[in-house]
Design a binder for these strands. Structure first.
Lengths: 302, 302
DNA sequence: TTTGGATTCGTTCAATTCGTTCATTTGATT
DNA sequence: AATCAAATGAACGAATTGAACGAATCCAAA
């Protein structure tokens, strides 16, 4: 996998546009976790670098220096080039519809590394793209298989990204969740799982199209700290609400129930009971951060 | 496909993503215990390499180079292969139902590398296991989510195995396929795809639950040499047969239509038109081998 | 057994990185 | 403005790493 590579201080220096000395200092001070060659040269796995970037709120300025694909950049007046997300999203959508997995992989891994991790990948790249793809499908411009193939490709690549994330510690809290019956959309629940992983949680993603009673027994058996429900599509609203209500009522009290997904409209949500609703992965990330150590600060609401 | 015991410096170099020179130096300095051939070439038993990795706190970055399954952060432990398949299958089933992905990964990659590749993995391990899991589910012994989680886990691990397979050449023939509407079972079609990959085909797996008309337009647009249909579950037999018949009739003549899956019973098959029916992955492998170079030796049958 | 193409040998050498020192920039405080 | 601490970047000889080379070895097929 291209993503698993050991970087030298020089590469990182040029990627971040800082001096090599600074990178070496950060390594020695422990800000960047660092491996060493037998001869004592520093070697930094990409995952360690990303870890550093997140805690210090830094960005990769030159992905090419790390062997990643260049993302579209537009030259702004003051000579600082900014990410042209519009162009990149368009390029990504095109590659998806053509079914070109390698091209999509380049874009995703580059976006993931240079932007804000899973969060930005989900909210800023994948979500808009699939909104657009869904529209094209409803318009009849593209075929169903293209939409499915797009999901399949993204699913595979996001799974690959898992190898960049540090193995969660055995004592980390457990997050469990899935997508209820009638909803086949797997990508959303996978991204949810990855966000928890990124925040150091242990996770158990149950997948899509699982009946509520079965979700309930999974929760009861494993007693996670958080249970997430990702809803992208609702077959029948009344049936859904009934099944959900029963699920929420019988969920053990110690478990935080988090819901999200584009199907949970403003009209629907007031009829549901949950601990938290997340409007996008950025939202979820802050929640995961907060709940990781502290106990639940959120009271159930109606 | 047996685990290679004696590794060359070149293999180790690419597995650790360092230069061959460095590996040779490490051997000569005694950092890696090294055997020699009569002619003086270095040969490193896997055990010695693992010893080295352990003491220097190093990881294999590219397991593919060693012919090992990608095991993530840890390295394959017991290369002593269990030939007691009964016991292994039982252990595997237990791990699946417990939802222990790491344990399942060990068993699958061990099976894959010591037995007959994808073929044996599908036919001898996964197929019997899921038959048994399905039975437990129908009996009510286990919950739906356990069966789904089992699928999910296997799906992920099989996808990881893809990194073991060589990249298909750009001129390799294309195999395309998927699972028709009403059938959610993704693992079978994924395994089918992997078998073609193993045989050097380019592949495009469309996933599960795709309506026949959409499968048809995918085939028309990409014109694969083979189109596979994997059927594990049929909602309504009459609807299925009609949609299938329409699909088969309109499929371009140059494309070989291969069908398979546990739902295609002896009573059903005579009512379908196809180029070949595969009863297991071993069957499919020989077909993929035969069709790879030669033209289609199979006449459509009724 | 012989043969020929692919791999590995041991060696040399250029490029990179090491650790260290020191000058410069940054940014907060007086 | 002036001061000072902290962070950054440039420069150095010494050490490590990786690429290249002809010669020797391996291995599978004739």
């Amino acid at each position: 996998m291209i993503l698993n590579d050991n970087l030298t201080p020089k590469q990182i220096a040029s990627a971040l546009r800082v001096s090599e000395s600074s990178v070496k200092r950060w390594c020695d001070r422990g800000d960047i976790r660092t491996d060493r060659t037998l001869g004592g040269h520093r070697r930094i796995p990409l995952g360690f670098l990303l870890e550093f970037l997140e805690t210090t709120n830094r960005r990769i300025l030159d992905p090419v220096a790390l062997g990643l694909a260049p993302l579209g950049r537009s030259v702004v007046q003051n000579s600082t080039s900014e990410l042209d997300s519009e162009a990149t999203i368009a390029r990504f959508e095109k590659s998806l519809l053509l079914g070109s997995e390698p091209e999509c992989r380049k874009i995703i891994s580059s976006w993931y590394s240079t932007q804000g991790g899973m969060c930005s990948l989900a909210d800023d790249l994948l979500c808009p793209t699939f909104r657009s793809v869904g529209k094209l499908w409803r318009e009849g411009t593209i075929d169903i298989y293209q939409e499915r193939l797009a999901c399949e490709i993204c699913h595979r690549i996001v799974l690959e990204l898992k190898w960049l994330l540090a193995e969660p510690s055995a004592t980390a809290p457990l997050a469990m969740g899935g997508t209820p019956a009638g909803d086949q959309y797997q990508l959303a629940t996978l991204l949810t799982e990855m966000v928890f992983r990124e925040q150091g949680w242990r996770t158990a993603g149950l997948g899509a199209n699982i009946p509520f009673p079965s979700l309930l027994s999974a929760a009861r058996k494993h007693m996670p700290k958080i249970f997430w429900i990702s809803v992208s599509h609702i077959e029948d609203e009344k049936t859904f609400l009934e099944a959900y209500a029963d699920f929420a009522k019988r969920l053990p009290k110690g478990i935080v129930l988090v819901v999200g997904g584009r199907a949970l409209s403003d009209e629907l949500r007031p009829k549901m009971m949950y601990s938290a609703h997340c409007d996008g992965m950025r939202h979820l990330t802050t929640l995961a951060k907060a709940l990781k150590t502290g106990s639940l600060p959120l009271a159930p609401q109606i």
